[in-house]
Amino acid sequence: MLPPRIFRRLVLAPLVIVATVFMLVTLPFWLVVTAAASLRLPPPQRRGARFVWFGVVWLTLESAVLMACLWLWVAGGARRQERHYGLIRWFLQKVYAAAVRIFRLTMDIEEPELTADERSARLTRPIIVLSRHAGPGDSFLLIYHLLAGYQRRPRIVMKAALQYDPSLDVVINRLPNAFVPRKSGQTRIIDEIRRLSATMEDQDALVIFPEGGNFTPRRRRLAIRRLEEKGLAEEAKRARGMDHLLPPRPNGAIAAIEACPSADVIFVAHTGLDDLITMGDVWRKLPLSAHITAKWWRVPADQVPTAREERIRWLYDHWEQIDSWISAQRLARTP
């Protein structure tokens, strides 16, 4: 059960700052310990020092964000959304830069070619982003590129447990987003998606992960079984044909489109670190150089199907396209 907000503000937030100071003071000790522990490991497995460095950077940035939020609250700027979007942008820029230096992260994004009119519309229409969900940090990278590369104001429905992260808790609760408890029914989630989508303006972007969670082979099997139990034979058949994705749950995407019919729809595929499913995978398998490839497809609002059954088939069509693209990318990387 999530602690009340007053506890999170008065206990968890200061605890992050205390932990940051402790790690900064004892950093040489942790670097020596991790270096000594890695001596008998081959170079690709010597990840301890890199994780220590990244952890210290993350904590330092978290503390900076918390102090900035406190200053905005004292100065009466807690309701100014642009300042908080700027704060998120700054945080993610620094995290991304740290990942580039520490984990040698590189990212290539292939975007659709746009006409002059489409480029203009891209900046003056709200968008609904439907992305696959797999690998460590994919949501952070997506939000970073929406903020930094496209000057968008992202909105997202998240698990309430993420409010254990104090900086995320403070900043996100001051912006049009939604946290939903773990045991919330599908109706609550759809209602929040509809609420966020209905109030979008030109620079807003609603981010949805239709799979409902990170891909794992077990989740894929269970999702296909659920479709079969519901009598959705066509969807189950199409889901079995996708090797890298969970079948999309259409209700959230359809609710968002219905609530904001003027929005363009962006489909996002990415691959590179999606085999790192658990924290243990990240610790054992993170390569010396991390590379992510992404591709975006844009569907103008007037080309989105109108009938519900057509929208479900259309969503599966794009999900199959994403799955095929991932297969091609993996084949291209295979020696």
Rank of each mutant, 00 (worst) to 15 (best):
Trp319Val: 03
Pro247Ala: 02
Ala290Phe: 06
Pro217Tyr: 11
Ile109Phe: 11
Ala269His: 11
Thr278Pro: 02
Leu286Cys: 08
Arg195His: 07
Trp296Pro: 07
Leu87His: 09
Pro28Gly: 01
Val265Ser: 04
Arg284Asp: 13
Ile189Leu: 09
Asp165Trp: 13
Arg220Gln: 13
Cys69Val: 11
Tyr144Gly: 03
Phe7Tyr: 15
Phe215Asn: 09
Met23Glu: 03
Trp53Cys: 05
Ala160Gly: 03
Asp302Asn: 11
Ile143His: 09
Phe7Asp: 00
Val56Pro: 01
Ser184Thr: 10
Leu286Phe: 14
Thr271Ala: 06
Gly272Glu: 09
Ala301Tyr: 06
Pro335Tyr: 03
Leu227Asn: 06
Arg80Leu: 07
Leu114Ala: 11
Asn251Phe: 01
Arg47Asn: 15
Leu87Tyr: 10
Asp275Lys: 12
His291Gly: 06
Ile326Glu: 04
Arg182Lys: 13
Thr115Glu: 08
His84Gly: 00
Tyr96Val: 15
Thr20Trp: 01
Asp165His: 09
Ala236Trp: 03
Pro126Gln: 08
Gly48Cys: 03
Leu276Trp: 05
Leu246Glu: 01
Glu118Gln: 15
Gln321Ala: 12
Lys230Gln: 15
Arg101Cys: 07
Glu111Asn: 10
Gln45Leu: 12
Arg40Leu: 15
Ile88Met: 15
Thr115Trp: 01
Ala19Phe: 14
Asn177Thr: 08
Val32Thr: 12
Ala68Glu: 09
Ile172Arg: 10
Val57Leu: 04
Leu286Ile: 10
Asn251Pro: 00
Thr199Cys: 05
Leu206Glu: 07
Met67Phe: 13
Leu141Lys: 10
Pro287Met: 02
Asp281Phe: 07
Arg104Tyr: 03
Leu15Phe: 12
Ala36Val: 13
Ala205His: 08
Ala307Trp: 01
Arg101Met: 08
Arg8Ser: 08
Leu222Glu: 11
Gln203Ile: 05
Glu235Tyr: 08
Phe51Lys: 13
Ala239Asn: 04
Pro300Thr: 04
